[in-house]
Amino acid sequence: MPYSPALARLIDELTKLPGIGPKTAQRLAFYLLSRPTEDVQSLAAAMVTARERTIHCRVCGNLSEADPCSICTGDGRDRSVICVVEEAKDVQALERTREFAGLYHVLGGAISPLDGIGPEDLRIKELLRRLEGGTVKEVIVATDPNAEGEVTAMYLARALKPLNVRVTRLARGLPVGGDLEYADEVTLGKALEGRRAL
């Protein structure tokens, strides 16, 4: 027997979410139907509110309800360092470490011709403008360690070269607490390269 139109539509909408296949969508839909109406209303309201209130900070591109965001306006942030990341979720990851007190710049992705993304589709011009004042002394490039992230880092290094700021790449490789003995040769090699000038 086919699903009722309302249920079929719910499954359809859920299937559009990243990483959700038809089977998972079906499971989620049945779960939602098993909950009290108030719970489902609360979930729906949370989704709509978050979508409506969240904007991109006009300075750094981070997701925020205030513009500029609380990091860009925050006291006690080191304004001489900018950490460049691909996505807003990377800002969250770095903030959780509590190790970095500088500013951020969210590119909004990485260079990827297969996805139709070129340098001009990223917030690179905005970054160059932020560096004009001369306050910023160092740019840390923390793009992902895959082909697209690496190429984006190289592109930035070239674009920033004339500006006379220090450009570094975030050291990556070994997970914190990772055991050297079990790290494969590739990971180890990358870790040894460390944080280097680009």
Binding site: I111, P113, G118, P119, E120, E150, V151, M154, R158
Partner: peptide
């Protein structure tokens, strides 16, 4: 060329 070809070359 201006859409990043030189960096893809290097990679």
């Amino acid at each position: 060329e201006e859409r990043g070809l030189p960096v893809w070359d290097e990679k």
